[in-house]
Design a protein around this nucleic acid. Structure first.
Lengths: 147, 147
DNA sequence: CATGGTCCGTCCAGAAAATAAACTGATTGG
DNA sequence: CCAATCAGTTTATTTTCTGGACGGACCATG
């Protein structure tokens, strides 16, 4: 099966994974949420070849996750910013961070702390039910076909 | 950069991505949460080569996300079940599903519906703050070094 | 007791994709 | 003029993936 085939599957995981489901794309998204916007900055932070950066940025841009906008003329240079669609990946990234914090943080604790500006506290994300507001456990979820 | 290098980074995204950050691993995890447990079932559902299935299942098992347990003797056959650590990936998978539902569902709506057994409603996941309980917006989060 | 079926893998060669390293090109500052 | 910055592209190599065959341990059927 190919990338393009994945996008055609009648499954939201498959379709999302076709967009964000590889190592470097996820690492680039992480950096986006940390405020990184420029090609050189991505390249330097990730330490991987420029081809990959170019490729992934293009892909994310085509999918509307990032927007390529000029930040100077002579020569025109572009930076990559999260769109609203991209910002909606925040729960995905936070969930990944939190899982990593729980299972791979060293003695010293998690490498990054997250503060919720609204309440001012350091927090971790909690997945709750949109209907009753209670935390959702994996075992408390039942799945059925939607169409 | 290699997979193993990623795992060494002082970043929880990198460390998590080193474990779950590729297409097929994520698709396998999706199936795990849908109750798939056997080699043949993964292979048939994903339609990819057996080599990859074997490789990813082994990797996830080594990382303690899945547990390989016998379900019959003569001959001994094993199935793959999510461990507690694996179950904790539920928010990650749900966040991915929800993003896909929002941006890639067709006219007919999302391919799968999720019911919260506790309250009995179809729901979508909401990321909330562990401290104040309010929904967390990407823009309301501030990050700083933890050690 | 052969024959086919199930199930979980492994092995191999060729095809496809990912990746690194060097290069291009426009421009600015000294 | 020379070096530096920045955003890529090109080329060659390395890695991964595919598709199929194969193995081994059984079971059911005729």
């Amino acid at each position: 099966m190919k990338w393009e085939d994945l996008a055609q599957e009648p499954c939201s995981v498959a379709r999302s994974v076709a967009v964000i489901g590889d190592r470097w794309t996820l690492m680039i998204l992480r950096d986006c949420f940390l405020g990184v916007r420029r090609f050189e900055a991505f390249q330097e932070r990730l330490g991987i070849s420029r081809t990959i950066i170019a490729d992934r940025l293009k892909h994310l841009t085509q999918e509307g996750v990032l927007k390529r906008t000029p930040y100077q003329d002579h020569p025109t240079r572009y930076e990559y910013r999260l769109t609203d669609k991209g910002l909606e990946l925040h729960p995905v990234v936070m969930a990944i961070v939190h899982w990593g914090d729980r299972h791979y943080a060293g003695q010293a604790g998690p490498p990054l702390l997250h503060r919720h500006k609204t309440c001012g506290c350091d927090f971790h994300p909690v997945q709750t039910c949109s209907e009753c507001g209670e935390p959702v456990e994996a075992r408390a979820v039942e799945t059925r076909p939607g169409f």
